[in-house]
């Protein structure tokens, strides 16, 4: 797909934003859980790949509608692997030191029941949109 003009680029941006919104919220207004796993060198070295496959399998096994994607370094190298979980209609929450055990707890308590779990990493930076 070639983008030929700036207008094209803007159109595509709107389309992708729509697509992402749909992915995050789903057709039946808000049922999809979104999980991002920090997969830079630091995360992978601490086991982020295993964490990611575990989460994919576990959510699949339990029939939870979710999108699990990889992303770059969130900066919390001391707490790798880190993941960000966004429940429908809620602010994203970042968890640190997510091994299998922690991942299972996050699924059991946060994703299934909406209860926060120990080990949240508060967002400690401002973004360019603020």
């Amino acid at each position: 797909m070639k983008i030929k003009t700036l207008a094209d680029l803007k159109k595509i941006k709107a389309e992708v934003q729509e697509k992402i919104k749909l992915r995050e919220q789903g057709e039946n207004a808000g049922n999809i859980v979104q999980v991002k796993v920090a997969m830079a060198t630091c995360g992978i070295a601490s086991g982020a790949k295993e964490t990611m496959s575990f989460i994919i399998e576990e959510l699949d096994f339990r029939g939870i509608d979710a999108v699990v994607t990889q992303t770059g370094c969130m900066g919390y190298c001391y707490a790798e692997p880190t993941i960000e979980v966004t429940l429908p209609g809620k602010d994203p929450v970042v968890y640190g030191y997510v091994d299998r055990e922690k991942a299972r707890q996050i699924i059991d308590e946060y994703i299934v029941k909406g209860e926060l779990v120990d080990g949240i990493i508060p967002v400690n930076y401002k973004t360019i949109d603020e």
């Binding site: 595509i12 992708v16 697509k19 990889q70 770059g72 370094c73 401002k126 360019i128």
Partner: peptide, 22 residues
């Protein structure tokens, strides 16, 4: 902290150009 250079690190999937465009 203020994230300018790192604005997308940890937000987007770096292997998907669409997320960057969005």
């Amino acid at each position: 902290q203020v994230r300018i250079a790192l604005r997308n690190c940890g937000f987007i999937n770096p292997e998907n150009i669409e997320e960057y465009i969005a």
